[in-house]
Write a protein that binds this DNA or RNA. Structure first.
Lengths: 117, 117
DNA sequence: CCGCATCCTATGAGATACTG
DNA sequence: CAGTATCTCATAGGATGCGG
């Protein structure tokens, strides 16, 4: 590696690279959200994966979890300062992907065609 | 998803999120590199994983592969225009990770400690 | 409503051995 | 030198059911 132990880059890669974190962060960038709200805003995510995604974000100090001891229980999630800062990087990722989407798709088609006569 | 099929974001996440692509791209940002050179510059990568990483980058049009029909064979890899553009995003990722490394590590320790008395 | 526990499968990735 | 071919293992993530 360019530097031993990856300088903490691995941790960020793991978040940005997994299936749901980017989507959840995008939704949380809109403000405070409840668990069920997030599950509705991120179609396809299971309860299990939403829980895991939020726990990991919470553990890294990117999201706060607030429990209101009501019946039924109510839990709110919100980006921390660091979490809001992360949205900048997420935007950069999404923007880059959209900007080069066509180019990459074309390259891929050309490559596959060259290998499949 | 915010948009169906992830708008191509998934493809970029897969590259940035895997174990070796970022390291290989960083080394290629320094200019043309041979296969064996990359294997030396990216400690720990196996022949197999270097091959896979380079093939995926080539398929997406991010890297060119030039074979010189010499004996022994010589193959050179180089970033394309799109590939060089990708290094900007990679830098952003690395910079963000370094900038928040300490904060994240602290949050993680605090979280783990709260759960392990 | 929110979330944990369990089971299961698909994929990423390491180790190793072999070739033009 | 620059790969390909297998094998194996660890982990991400889906499905489902229970519990406070």
């Amino acid at each position: 590696m360019s530097c031993a132990e990856d300088c903490g880059v691995r941790d960020v890669q793991d978040r940005l690279g997994d299936k749901w974190t980017v989507h959840v962060v995008v939704e949380l960038s809109g403000g405070v959200r409840r668990f069920s709200e997030l599950q509705r805003l991120v179609p396809g995510i299971s309860q299990r994966m939403l829980t895991l995604t939020l726990r990991r974000l919470e553990r890294d100090g990117l999201v706060t979890r607030t429990v209101y001891p009501t019946v039924p229980p109510q839990v709110e999630y919100e980006l921390t300062a660091t979490g809001r800062d992360l949205t900048g990087l997420v935007r950069a990722l999404v923007d880059w992907s959209l900007a080069h989407r066509g180019t990459i798709a074309d390259a891929r088609r050309a490559y596959d065609e060259r290998r499949r006569p």
